[in-house]
Each structure stands twice: as structure tokens, then as C-alpha cells.
Design a protein around this nucleic acid. Structure first.
Lengths: 191, 191
DNA sequence: CGAGGCCTTGACCGCGGTCAATGCCCGTGG
DNA sequence: CCACGGGCATTGACCGCGGTCAAGGCCTCG
């Protein structure tokens, strides 16, 4: 499948994959499309699928005291997965949603984990992936603990300037751990 | 080596290990002792060793604007490792310190990673470990973002009541992301 | 043209921060 | 053995960041 090429390319850049592993993996993957604001996975479902964004934008969010909190944004060539649910196989309090019309690769987790037995390179690749996500999360933890809301906003704009073009402020605010009102003020005084 | 038994037991509880893998691993491990307040690894060094606490207490900390911030506590049967440095092989801004006289298992990372090639079960075990740490960190991130200092303190006391017996309040405060003064007030008003 | 979503702005408040003084415990040396 | 000094915890005074509540402007879309 040609449409999967960006996906395979991304994976191979982390750890080389044998031809067989690539083919086996591709056999299990499928491409799905979602419309703007459509739910890719819903709250309460146990996570059994890993997604890779080909086009569009995805986000993970959950409800905290009735208001939406955004935990993660995914752009083309990003993976998106509710790790706490996948790795514990318990129902997730979180949902995955398409913020634009999107095309994604769906990788079913169980067959993938099965492939680890016959394809060591796949398991190693996956381990490296988890390590990366872990390190990213450690950094985010440090930031949220010790930077002010304004510093976090500036940092985010430096690292992901594309966010601001495509994503409603209210989602960015909750991602930063502040309210929409506070974010609006921060932006206001920078002018 | 008999002293390593708790370590092997802990690992096996996560994922079974073949006798050969166990023996190979044990050959690389050593037991080290540290005195109270001694540094196990220093700031600036790139992390090349994974530790497992047999007895005593360890912590990871770093300096934020000149003041110590505690990132992690490890009790007997816990692993302790500066993951961001180990997984990126860059110098760590963090240190590992013994908070009591301690006995630890030192596992050199490079030989361990080599063993992954010949012992798949070891690599899988390690992957599971990283997954767990990742999930733990995701939870901590949520807590620090959306609980008040008081709620975080109460939660920590429920989950790890042994902390309070053995660890100076100032370390607990910085672990919670607040100052020693604020923590003292929180405790004060609970009486 | 009206309705609803999104963003901004003002008024107000409380959590947790800083600075500084005080009390307490403990190890060390006269 | 007591005196002193230093580290840790507590407490008070004060303040600022970011929260809530509410009103108002501006889009877009039916």
C-alpha cells in the first residue's frame, strides 16, 4: 500500500525494519478517515488500537469536573495513543478526536504485540518508541511544575508554532493547564 | 549471589526470565553500598547505570534556580534511574543520592542492552518496565496539573505513608511542587 | 437576521510564593 | 557537661498569578 509509506518511513527512522516485518505489519494496518470533530475513540472504551496521523490533526482529551482537558495534540507523522489504557488494558477515561478532516493509520495492538514474538526488530522499535514518549512526558512534567503559565505558552509557541494556526485557543489553554481566560490575558499583554 | 534474590524476584514478577538470562544478568550486576547523603550519581554525568534499592532510600534531584527539586523517591524493591539521560545518552542535569545508608544493585546499561540481542525475554521485561514508568509519569502529570497542593499531599500520604517517617519535609515539598513553607501550612491546618 | 460558539476584558478572590523571625533538635568542641 | 552553631520546621505579613463569574464583541452558519 502506497499510502502507508510515510508511516513505514517514520518507523524505519527510529529503528530499521526487515522487509518481512514491514509486510506483516502493513497487512494488519488499515487507513481510516474521520471528519472534523468526529470521535476516533470514545471515553470508556479500552484502548486496543494505535493511530498514526497521515493528514489532519488529532487530540486526546478527558473530562475533569465536567470540562474538557486536552492532554495531547497529534499532527501529520505523529503517533497518537491512549497509553495508560493500552498498557494497563483498563477502560480509558480519555477520548481521541479529529480536530480536522483527517486520514489516519490504525494499527491493532494485539496483532502488533503478537508480531513481537516472530519479529524482534518490531519489538525493539516499539520499545524505543515508548522510551521516547516517556522522556517527552518527563519533560512536560518538569515544565508544568516549574514554569509559569506564560513561560509555558511561550515555550509551546517556539516548539510548535503550527498549533496556533489550527487549534482553538480553549484547547491550547487546557493543554497548558490554564483556563481560556488566562491564556487570552497572556496573549493580550504581549501586544 | 544470594543478595540479588529480591532483585531477580522483582524482575520475574513483571515477566518470566529464563535461567540463562538470569545468570547472564547477575554476572553483570554488582552490589554497592552508600552512606547517608552520599551521591550515587552526580550532576553532569551521562547515565550509564540502572539501580535497584535493596535497603535504604534513594532520590533523584536537580537544581532549579539554585534550589534542589526532588523528582523521585526510591524505597527497597524500587528501581531508580535517570531515564532522560539514559535514553538520550546526554549528560544529566540530575543527581541520584542516598537519603539513608543504602545497599543497591548496580546494573550497567550497555551490557544489559547487549544482552537484549541474545535474550529476548530480557528485552521484553525491560519494555514492560518502561511502559509502567511511562504510565506512572502520565498519572503524575495529571495530578500536578489539576490537583491543589493539599490534594496532592493527601494523595501522596495515602499512596506512600512511609515517606513521612523517613524523609525530610523539604524534599517532600519539592517533590509535590511546592515550598517547604506551604507544605508546613497544609500540615498545620490538618490539626 | 438571529443564535450560538469563540475570544476578550473587567472585577474580585484565594492559593501558594517570598521574606523574615522564632523555636527546636542535634552534633561538636571548649 | 554545657554552650554554641547550623539545619529543619513552623508561623506571620504581604503579594501576585491565575481562577471564577459575568458582560460584551465578533464570527459563522442556518
Amino acid at each position: 500500500m502506497n499510502a502507508l509509506l510515510p508511516f513505514i518511513k517514520y518507523l524505519s527512522s527510529l529503528h530499521p525494519l526487515s522487509k518481512e516485518a514491514q509486510e506483516q505489519l502493513i497487512d494488519w494496518c488499515s487507513i481510516k478517515t474521520f471528519r472534523k470533530n468526529e470521535e476516533i475513540q470514545t471515553i470508556g472504551a479500552t484502548c486496543k488500537t494505535i493511530y498514526f496521523i497521515l493528514s489532519g490533526i488529532g487530540r486526546i482529551y478527558y473530562l475533569k469536573d465536567g470540562v474538557e482537558v486536552t492532554e495531547y495534540f497529534a499532527f501529520p507523522n505523529d503517533l497518537i495513543v491512549r497509553a495508560e489504557s493500552l498498557f494497563t488494558q483498563t477502560p480509558s477515561r480519555k477520548a481521541i478526536q479529529a480536530l480536522e478532516d483527517s486520514q489516519v493509520v490504525a494499527i491493532p495492538a494485539d496483532p502488533l504485540f503478537q508480531l513481537f514474538d516472530s519479529h524482534r526488530d518490531l519489538e525493539r522499535l516499539f520499545r524505543i518508541l515508548v522510551q521516547q514518549s516517556y522522556v517527552d512526558t518527563l519533560h512536560r512534567l518538569e515544565n508544568i511544575q516549574f514554569l509559569t503559565a506564560e513561560e509555558r505558552y511561550i515555550k509551546l509557541m517556539e516548539e510548535k508554532p503550527e498549533l496556533i494556526q489550527h487549534i482553538p485557543l480553549k484547547h491550547i489553554a487546557s493543554f497548558l493547564g490554564i483556563t481560556q481566560v488566562s491564556l487570552s490575558r497572556i496573549r493580550g499583554q504581549k501586544r
